[in-house]
């Protein structure tokens, strides 16, 4: 039985920067914990047990989120082969994309303010198909720009036309 999401022959999946976890924690932690804590803080009339339970709920939510973030971080992988790029991500909703270099039209590199502070960036590959959706998130800056340059060069060298 072939594992559908295993890396292509003899090349291991290349992971992304662990700082992706930090980014996601900073982004998601306030969203999942603060509502519980705020309710707990302002519910003066509620019993202390309920208020403590709410605080704990916040921690549990954070725990679950952190677990999911780690899982998602581990699931990211990409492999540059001679003629195409393989990108895989997702643990519960899995997705594997194969993009031939000859089909790449634009390679986007972008980083928001938080990503810049952490020194990571997102590389997105566009083909003539709108559905391609090949993104690698959380690449170290240097690696991301090198990847972008390699992709662009290979894309030009192998351009297949429509």
């Amino acid at each position: 039985m072939v594992d559908a999401f295993s890396s292509p022959a003899d090349r291991p999946w290349q992971g992304v920067s662990p700082r992706l976890k930090t980014l996601r924690v900073f982004r998601l932690a306030p969203l999942v914990t603060l509502p519980w804590w705020l309710v707990s803080a302002f519910a003066w009339n509620a019993s202390p047990i309920l208020r403590i339970a709410l605080v704990l709920l916040g921690f549990i939510a954070f725990g679950i989120t952190f677990f999911l973030i780690v899982q998602n971080y581990k699931s990211w992988g990409f492999v540059e082969r001679d003629e195409d790029l393989w990108v895989m991500h997702g643990r519960f909703f899995k997705k594997l994309v194969v993009v031939p270099y000859g089909r790449m039209q634009v390679v986007d590199l972008n980083a928001g303010p938080m990503e810049r502070a952490l020194g990571i960036a997102k590389v997105k590959l566009h083909t003539a198909a709108a559905t391609t959706d090949a993104v690698i998130v959380g690449l170290e800056n240097a690696e991301a720009s090198k990847l972008r340059d390699r992709m662009t060069a290979l894309g030009e060298a192998m351009a297949a036309g429509l």
């Binding site: 519960f92 909703f93 594997l96 194969v98 993009v99």
Partner: peptide, 11 residues
């Protein structure tokens, strides 16, 4: 004319 290939799978 294949642009890219995807395999997707939900839980």
């Amino acid at each position: 004319k294949v642009q890219s290939i995807r395999i997707t799978c939900g839980p």
